[in-house]
Design a binder for these strands. Structure first.
Ligand code: FES
Ligand code: FES
Lengths: 151, 151
DNA sequence: TATTTAAAGGATAAAAAAGTCTTTTATTAT
DNA sequence: ATAATAAAAGACTTTTTTATCCTTTAAATA
């Protein structure tokens, strides 16, 4: 569905957002640990998100990444996905033809249109605040949690 | 969404099916031409589909690929996709966690469940016959058609 | 101002996916 | 039987994606 880069990007944004709500900047190291992602690769993805004004970064001591709390409910999942994967997921042809169009539809075009509309709808209507909510309440997770009974 | 291999695989099956309905075996060369795919790569994918009993092949002169007409309406899109890409598209976690579960759901789990159910539903209920229908009527296409006015 | 800290940038490496090529095997028709 | 045909098999190459490493730049603070 999404590229690995995009998956890490979304997870990183959600984690950064939870901490930004408590006015805390977070370091790359902390992010990678909390979302269980490879640190240098995550750095690259964050650079891209910073360029796209989704994440804000500050260098040096007590620096790190944050997302301005006022933006957390205006940033849509679509914005993050678009920054990293573009729009092929909801615009491209499901059978990989150069373009998806009503004029030259592939055999699964009509079935796929429904799916792609659903994806677009989800990306367009889900904001970052919604995604952080469950995480803060311990109802959702960004990595497989290991408890004290099993590892 | 699907891998390139899977896209070619689906397109190949649809083309083979249309010809099999006229009792014609088709060669790799013809398939690759008709679905606009790289010939040797398509060969690999077809081998896999033959192993998975979705496509039948015969070597030698007047050999080629076909799909038994009686199977065309029982082969589901799911069967083709599963042969090539497995079930990660509707079973995996949208944010790339090792598994998708209700016990340890990721922040987009609930939104994604709807999408994934839609995909599963589509794959489970769409059969090969449905997909060949539009193609035979010139309503759907397996490659961008070039007409006499523009190329 | 010097030192430390942490991200940015750029080059590189590893792995996976996509695509190619050559040889072998099976089948048909001569 | 033999030649021709077409898929199967397996090794190989290229491209893309994923991941790592090292140097530079910017900011804070001591
Ligand atoms: S043309 Fe293939 S999905 Fe629209
Ligand atoms: S846990 Fe991520 S989609 Fe279910």
């Amino acid at each position: 569905m999404f590229s690995k880069a995009c998956e890490y990007g979304i997870r990183a944004c959600i984690y950064i957002a939870t901490q930004s709500l408590s006015d805390k900047r977070v370091s790359l190291k902390e992010i990678a640990k909390e979302i269980d992602s490879p640190e240098p690769f995550t750095a690259k993805i964050l650079q891209e998100l910073v360029k796209n004004k989704i994440v804000d970064s500050v260098k040096g001591p007590s620096g790190g990444f944050m997302i301005s709390p006022s933006n957390i409910s205006t940033i849509m999942l679509r914005d993050i996905v678009f920054s990293i994967d573009g729009d092929s997921i909801y615009k491209g042809c499901g059978l990989g033809m150069k373009e998806c169009s009503e004029i030259c539809p592939c055999p699964i075009h009509n079935q796929f249109k429904i799916i792609k509309n659903g994806i677009k709808e989800m990306l367009d209507t889900t904001n970052l605040h919604q995604l952080t909510y469950g995480l803060q309440n311990g109802m959702t997770f960004l990595k497989i949690e290991k408890n004290e009974f099993r590892d």
